[in-house]
């Protein structure tokens, strides 16, 4: 067994798990944080995306031993019941998700993008979502929501988007 202690959404958490456990399994099975999803389990789909030490990664591709002492942010750390992150508000506003399975990963990827680049172009947003597969939406409404959230986070008004 491996003893691991790390910070998850600002809280120090510990567990004792087999060494072949991935960060994703640790979050879901030990800490009951089921926002990050188990999709492909090989780093293609991005449904398991979390932020580790400021960078978005596939949590299915990290072993628990590799996250000892690191800081992890999951979708659960982005908001609480009373307060949604601007990205979440605008994903709701624009109807950016359909089945929603990819949603936590997409929103975490978008959050990591806006942390580094407060005013991304459409091309930059597409690049940032290149590792998040969504088979429902076609991405257009997600890109509108991410642009809108970037406006809010910069303290500007969200420009009106013509509805289809």
């Amino acid at each position: 067994m491996v003893n691991v202690t790390l910070k998850v959404n600002g809280e120090t958490r510990s567990a004792s798990v087999p060494p072949e456990t991935t960060l994703l399994r640790l979050l879901r099975d030990q800490f009951n944080l089921t926002g990050a999803k188990l999709g492909c389990d090989v780093g293609d789909c991005g449904a398991c995306t979390v932020i580790v030490d400021s960078k978005p990664v596939n949590s299915c591709l990290m072993l628990v031993g590799q996250v000892e002492g690191r800081e992890v942010l999951t979708i659960e750390g982005l908001a609480n019941a009373d307060h949604l992150h601007p990205l979440q508000k605008l994903f709701e506003h624009f109807g950016s998700l359909q089945c929603g399975f990819c949603g936590p990963g997409v929103i975490i990827s978008a959050k990591a993008l806006l942390d580094e680049n407060p005013d991304p172009s459409t091309e930059e947003i597409r690049d940032a979502l290149g590792g998040n597969l969504c088979r429902c939406t076609g991405y257009t409404k997600m890109i509108e929501a991410i642009k809108g959230a970037s406006c809010i986070l910069r303290g500007e008004e969200v420009p009106a988007v013509k509805s289809a």
Partner: peptide, 9 residues
């Protein structure tokens, strides 16, 4: 190579 997540790792 890959996508942002895999390039970070």
């Amino acid at each position: 190579i890959g996508a942002v997540q895999t390039r970070n790792l």
